[in-house]
Design a protein around this nucleic acid. Structure first.
Length: 256
DNA sequence: AATCATGTCAACCGCAGTGCG
DNA sequence: CCGCACTGCGGTTGACATGAT
């Protein structure tokens, strides 16, 4: 697989590398090491630009590169690292076991991103995707005592409910807060989930966020709980998102 | 069997960061 | 301080593979 070979205006070969070119590059680097990518092609007799040589070496020829399918552990690691680092593929690849940034990036774009979307998780923010129609309504009694949050598209929210609506929207769409996400990832979440489970029983609010809508699974408390009960391995993988979901609901609790 | 859609992967392109004169 | 050259990175593209219809 690869691109067709052609020669550009400067006489430089482009496209797929041949086995012979690979051998030349490896032999040259083994003998002389890497010092100057720009002049390396000329010195090694390759009709390639330095950039192309560098890329070929780093992504394919460099010794120790791990190729082939990503293991579930690696995928989990990528997801966790992406939540902290964002699209910094080189930084993510450095934390992985001999994977290249190109490999990680390709796997993310072709597979992991879509998988997260199917689970109802925004791949950029790593937050659960909350139904945009979510509306929060409260009464004075609600504000005075325990909170009650329900989904409603018909009633017009009060001033405080309007504020809460904005808050809910903000939670669902806010950008990375790096430090916060780092904390979320670094703190063991199983324990906190257990606490949440106990606390959750006391919780008297409810968020209705709908069922599957197209390919997107909307999350609510019961969904998350069922998810945790029925699919342990997947739960391990998605623990950060489950935790963030709970955290989001706690933010609302605190403010109410 | 043919066609289309989707997935995978290698490579290119352009830009930002860095170092140096 | 400025401009240039070089390197490294992330986004994107293109070609082949595979599966679905």
């Amino acid at each position: 697989m690869g691109r067709k070979r052609w020669v550009d205006g400067d006489g430089m070969k482009k496209g797929e590398w041949t086995a012979e070119e690979d051998q030349n590059l490896v032999a040259y680097i083994n003998e002389h090491g890497i010092c100057d990518w720009r002049t390396l092609p000329r010195r090694s007799g390759l009709q390639r630009c330095g950039k192309s040589c560098r890329l070929r070496w780093l992504n394919y020829l460099r010794p120790g590169i791990k190729r082939g399918k990503f293991t579930p552990q690696e995928e989990e690691e990528i997801i966790k690292l992406h939540a902290v680092l964002g699209n910094r593929w080189a930084a993510i690849a450095k934390e992985m076991d001999n994977r290249t940034d190109n490999d990680v990036k390709n796997h993310w774009n072709s597979s992991l991103k879509k998988r997260l979307l199917r689970k109802g998780i925004d791949p950029m923010t790593h937050e659960p995707i909350i139904n945009n129609n979510l509306t929060v309504t409260t009464t004075k009694e609600d504000c005075a005592s325990s909170s009650t949050i329900t989904s409603s598209s018909t009633s017009s929210p009060s001033g405080s409910a309007s504020l809460l609506n904005k808050l809910a929207t903000g939670i669902s769409s806010r950008q990375h807060d790096l430090d916060r996400i780092k904390n979320i990832l670094l703190v063991p979440r199983i324990t906190s989930i257990d606490q949440d489970e106990q606390e959750g029983l006391k919780r008297d609010h409810k968020i209705e966020s709908g069922e599957e809508e197209g390919d997107f699974l909307m999350w609510d408390v019961e969904e998350v709980r069922r998810f945790m009960e029925t699919d342990e391995m997947e739960y391990e993988t998605t623990t950060p998102y489950v935790s963030r979901f709970y955290e989001s609901t706690h933010v609302l609790d605190d403010l109410l």
